[in-house]
Design a protein around this nucleic acid. Structure first.
Length: 448
RNA sequence: GCGGGUUUAGCUCAGUUGUUUAGAGCGCCACCUUGCCAAGGUGGAGGCCGCGGGUUAGAGUCCCGCAACCCGCACCA
């Protein structure tokens, strides 16, 4: 058995062939950085979201969910630092086209193009070539609200979901009558004009995040930071079933951190292209609430009745890219093993995450078998509520392999004896073990 | 965004120095098979050869532009 030897090509090919992920607007040649989820992809993604939501929101009695708008008042992104931080002045080497941060080359912390142009006037590129004039690169996607495109109506598609959590901090606290510490969680799309989308769905321009902001007393930073780091590790290894061998910690150095973070610990996953970021636990301090107070003029401080103390809550963030997690789940599950002379491809995915839980497979297309199989199928759907598939085409072996390839944990086969004895064969994905059981015991025998 | 490579069936790929109806394996569909791990037989569907322009009597093949993907570089709040 070789596990996690999957290449990016194998993964992309499987994802398309089996209906997990398609290139967005493929018939028009696609669009760099955008992907669509197919029938099995959307099931897997929904299961992933459900798992995270359960472990994050339902498992913590002081964590609440919200679902914010993608487009917010542009002032929000000014306060969050994204208008400044996401807009980088860049210069180009005029000979070889290599691009550099103008402020880095000039050795100043400035986004003023005139100032940078002046400072870089006589500078050469690291390769000794003349530089172009500095230009602004904006990573935020722009749009216009209302039918008239003017500077007044410019808005941005959110570059991260967190923004609306901070703006709703006070409303959520009030409506849930929460005391600090408490958390607000959100799953949703975010958009960034990445310069070069890469590596399948790893680096994309439209992506989905699952993140939670935990509001705490400033004295509790260490404790909360540690708690959410441990939570993240347990989530991936226990709840999601990722192998510990495929995960490692990565602590951000001072130059790596986002503009808002005082400390950052990422978990990296062993993707086909190497160990790369899967999720992050960041200490955002009071950066966000303080800036929103400044920009909005609203008071977002918290008064602790017990200690008679007023303070600006600090924030520990737990965030993850769902597309990356999706990819990690597939990589972690992908297995090739020998079955006779053939290579069997099987996604050893956690049953709770599997896109299809059970496949009902009549051994023959004879009407009397189809009738019983349809009945078994319908009853199973009703009793379990699972996504269940019905397949009667081609040989039984082939149908098993189809289900293996999408990670279906159970197959039920119905034969002519079933008509007599009311029993069917339940086949388990990983062991390929078969057991004969009564139809009425079927639903209870399926362990997800 | 820069440099290099690639793009032909759902997938993986072959197509010679330009020439008539563009191929293979796998996959898919139908029929046969009381049939349990990609079996076999027969039949079938599926390609404007990435898109657009050009050269030519004639282009999958040569030239130009664009797009997407892959590998480096740079970028990654």
């Amino acid at each position: 058995m070789t596990q996690n030897q999957v290449t990016l090509e194998t993964l992309t090919s499987l994802a398309k062939r089996r209906g997990f992920v398609f290139q967005a607007s493929e018939i028009y040649g696609g669009l760099a950085g955008f992907w669509d989820f197919g029938p099995y992809g959307v099931e897997l993604m929904n299961n992933i979201k459900q798992l995270w939501w359960r472990e994050m929101v339902y498992a913590h009695r002081n964590v609440y969910g919200v679902d914010g708008a993608i487009i917010q008042n542009p002032k929000l992104w000014k306060a969050s630092g994204h208008v400044a931080g996401f807009t980088d002045p860049m210069v180009e080497d005029t000979k070889n086209g290599k691009r550099y941060r103008a402020d880095h080359l000039a050795g100043v912390d400035s986004t003023d193009l005139n100032e940078l142009a002046e400072l870089l006037k006589d500078k050469k590129s690291p390769d000794g070539n003349p530089l172009s004039a500095p230009r602004v690169f904006n990573m935020m996607m722009k749009t216009w609200v209302g039918p008239i495109e003017s500077d007044d109506s410019v808005a941005y598609l959110r570059p991260e979901t967190a923004g609306s959590i901070f703006t709703n901090f006070e409303l959520v606290r009030e409506t849930t009558r929460s005391k600090v510490p408490f958390g607000i969680a959100q799953i949703g799309k975010a958009f960034r004009n990445e310069i070069s989308p890469r590596d399948f769905i790893f680096r994309v321009r439209e992506f989905e995040q699952a993140e939670m902001q935990y509001f705490i007393h400033p004295d509790n930073q260490e404790e909360a930071y540690q708690y959410w780091r441990d939570w993240a590790w347990n989530f991936y290894t226990q709840a999601a079933g990722l192998s510990e061998d495929n995960l490692q910690w990565h602590e951000h150095g001072p130059t790596e951190r986002a503009h808002y973070a005082a400390a950052a610990h990422d978990i990296y996953f062993k993707f086909p292209q190497g160990f790369k970021e899967l999720c992050g636990t960041h200490n955002r301090t009071d950066f966000d609430l303080s800036n929103h107070m400044k920009e909005s003029g609203k008071d977002l401080t918290y008064f602790d009745e017990a200690t008679r103390e007023r303070f600006t809550p600090n924030v520990i963030e737990s965030s993850m890219g769902l597309g990356r997690f999706f990819m990690a789940v597939l990589c972690n599950a992908y297995t090739e093993e020998k079955a006779g002379d053939e290579t069997r491809i099987v996604l050893k995915i956690k049953p709770s995450l599997a896109p299809v839980k059970v496949a009902v497979l009549p051994l023959s297309k004879k009407p009397e078998l189809s009738a019983l199989s349809e009945k078994v199928y319908k009853e199973l759907v009703q009793k379990t509520g699972y996504n269940i598939e019905y397949d009667e085409t081609q040989s039984i072996g082939r149908r098993y392999r189809r289900q293996d390839e999408i990670g279906t944990p159970y197959c039920v086969t119905i034969d002519f004896e079933s008509l007599q004895d009311g029993q069917v064969t339940l086949r388990e994905r990983d062991s390929m073990q078969q057991t004969r059981i009564k139809i009425e015991d079927l639903a209870a025998s399926i362990k997800i």
